[in-house]
């Protein structure tokens, strides 16, 4: 296990390196520069000065080495779109906001999704199954920004129970969490149902049934446990997305999170911010992926990590 983990960390470092190179090249391939030219073009001198100020006039390789050197020392630079703070400072003020919202959404989505999935699977082809499936289908068919707008119109404008948006009080969580949780809940429900049906037809469940175990025992001890594998695979990648924020939900509910920067940094050619965001997501994702792999071994002991059959 220790050797496996070491290997994984080496892998993560390689991933970081490749991600940084790929993104660095991609973002510098986008036409246009980071300066403001909203009305009339800047003078060439002003542009040149701007480029010099941020070292953008140097060869790409040099820029990359310089950036990574600084990054390794913990200096991620200054975001072009918000030069009064550092990239680190910006992420420190916005990420916790997005993360808390994302975790709240997961806390709602996973238990509810599991419940719906189990109900649908154990009562297959009954009205309960259909109702549960319909609920989860809703989560996957209506874009969350549409749900968000509906929620505002209903709860803020019509019923006046909640403010239309904002941040800082517990009730500011309600609408964004509901809008965010729908899709992962639906996904959980759907995969749970599918996997349970799949697993319950397999030999060992039939054996268990033959052994005379009760339905509930089979469900908790065998079926559910085995049904979790595909679920982990599918749900894992959702988590980094959720806890790093989403532009649509955050902008509709005025949540001062990280989400919008994924878009504005690209639209504004904010190179330091693009790099930082990608490295951040790479870290979050690597951690989640590692946990996912470890979870596989827990729910299915037959999965042996890092060992091939031969």
């Amino acid at each position: 296990m220790a050797r496996y983990l070491l290997g994984r960390f080496a892998g993560i470092l390689i991933v970081f390196f490749i991600v940084s190179v790929v993104v660095f090249l991609l973002m510098h391939a986008i036409p246009g520069g980071p300066y403001n030219e909203d009305k009339v073009p800047l003078s060439p001198e002003a542009k040149a000065n701007y480029m010099r100020k941020y070292g953008l006039d140097r060869p790409l390789v040099e820029q990359y080495v310089l950036y990574m050197g600084n990054a390794l020392r913990g200096d991620f630079g200054v975001p072009f779109q918000s030069p009064t703070e550092t990239v680190t400072g910006l992420i420190a003020r916005t990420w916790p906001v997005s993360a808390s919202l994302g975790f709240a959404a997961l806390l709602v989505a996973i238990p509810l999704g599991l419940l719906l999935g189990i109900i649908a699977a154990t009562r297959q082809n009954t009205w309960l199954d259909y109702a549960a499936s319909a609920t989860s289908t809703l989560g996957l068919t209506v874009p969350n920004f549409v749900v968000a707008v509906w929620l505002v119109l209903l709860f803020a404008v019509q019923l006046k129970w909640l403010p239309t948006g904002g941040w800082g009080e517990w009730y500011h969580y309600i609408m964004p969490v509901v809008a965010l949780a729908l899709a992962p809940m639906a996904l959980t429900a759907r995969y749970t149902r599918t996997s349970i049906l799949e697993v319950s037809r397999s030999d060992f469940i039939r054996t268990a049934r033959a052994k005379g175990l009760s339905g509930r025992q089979i469900m908790t001890r065998h079926t559910l446990r085995n049904a979790l594998i595909p679920l982990i695979t599918v749900l894992g990648p959702q988590i980094p997305n959720l806890i790093t924020g989403t532009i649509f939900i955050e902008s509709i509910f005025r949540v001062p999170g990280l989400g919008k920067f994924f878009v504005t940094s690209i639209l504004g050619r904010d190179y330091p911010m693009i790099m930082a965001l990608l490295l951040l997501v790479a870290v979050v994702w690597s951690v989640v992926y590692l946990i996912t792999d470890i979870l596989y071994t827990i729910v299915d002991p037959r999965v042996r990590l890092g060992k091939s059959k031969s």
Binding site: V22, V23, P237, N241, V281
Partner: peptide, 9 residues
């Protein structure tokens, strides 16, 4: 991992 580590959007 490289591709997944870059957010889809």
């Amino acid at each position: 991992e490289v591709f997944t580590a870059i957010p889809a959007l």
